[in-house]
Design a protein around this nucleic acid. Structure first.
Lengths: 190, 190
DNA sequence: TGACTGATGTCAGTCACTGACTTAACTATA
DNA sequence: TATAGTTAAGTCAGTGACTGACATCAGTCA
């Protein structure tokens, strides 16, 4: 056995989610989270840049996943289809998580404005990466930005539905339905 | 003359923008802003819920303006056109501000992640309001959300261009150009 | 064996933000 | 006109997120 219990970061994340569910985000101090994980507050801030960040693990992984899907989309795909390939990849990944944990996390975030703000920032970070990937495919900057933003909104919406509703659709199916409705509405062009 | 100098809120906003430009957001304390405005820190927090908020005055006004434009769009307009009417209204309003002040503000926000986060939250707030207005027009929730998000991204992009570039286009013109490019790209549908 | 590393602890500090209470000019009303 | 209420501030004493500097000590490597 090592000098310390292993996986301190993961223990902090688990402790935080549990406490946030029990008492709420504001009613939980970083010292309490650390104590529950058998660590000190100072160590919490070595693993996470701030209190909110503890809820957003796995963020970089998802970003690289999306980007890769956009980059690897068939070269004849335009911006819209390329970006949808990215959304699909993310939806498959997110849809493979335990739905109940995703729902817990969503409830905590929904209950707190600061956390919603951070979630938007994460989405924007993804969107920035997707924009860059689209530019490599020859799309002009503003259009790339709009497509990226559209894609992430789509994913976000789908995730909200998937974690709140109790129907049989997979996350991917939900996203596809939303996409088609949107495309039809734009095509009307009136 | 009244007991206090008038327009304390405005003085705080001016003092904040000046200090943020001089030293940066992080290097300025709320006490310093208050002192420069001839007030105390406690009063700062009576006017603004937090330090960042001092940079986002006029927010409610712009929101009602956008919503009204969406609501007042001709009934035969679909979601896309209705939402573009909202963008136009906002662009006209924002485009009427002094470009140099808008640029100052943009530089401060761009230099600080917390401020960018708050700006995204404001955009999301607008988007939520626009979504509601679209639902009244009979648009289904997810499509309304996507259209609203698209509109606000368009506005945000245009504003970034308008405050950074030095060309002759008005904000409204910039937004229209972006819109057309985007519509064309989606219409390709490949 | 001894120097080095790396994850953690300890401690003291700064600063955003809040609650409770106070102050004094303005306003309305008896 | 006196008085009571309102309002926009000030004062003060917190709490808690976050940081920098330094200490510890099991494991590793020369």
């Amino acid at each position: 056995m090592g000098r310390w219990e292993p996986n301190s970061k993961g223990r902090l994340q688990d402790a935080a989610l549990t406490l946030f569910c029990e008492r709420g985000f504001d009613q939980t101090t970083t010292a309490e989270i650390a104590a529950r994980a058998g660590l000190t507050e100072r160590t919490f801030f070595r693993h996470f840049t701030d209190k909110r960040e503890v809820l957003f693990g796995g963020h970089e992984l998802l970003r690289t996943l999306i980007i890769k899907a956009v980059e690897d989309a068939p070269p004849q795909y335009g911006a819209f289809r390329a970006v949808l390939a990215g959304v699909d990849a993310a939806a498959v990944q997110l849809g493979s998580f335990r739905r109940d944990l995703s729902r817990q996390r969503r409830l905590v975030i929904a209950a707190n404005p600061e956390l919603r703000e951070r979630e938007l920032a994460k989405l924007d970070d993804y969107a920035g990466a997707v924009t860059a990937a689209l530019k490599v495919r020859g799309i002009d900057e503003p259009t790339a930005h709009l497509m990226a933003s559209l894609a992430l909104t789509l994913l976000h919406l789908g995730l909200k539905h998937w974690t709140s509703e109790v129907d049989d659709q997979t996350l991917v199916e939900v996203v596809h339905r939303y996409t088609e409705n949107f495309r039809a509405e734009i095509a009307k062009n009136q």
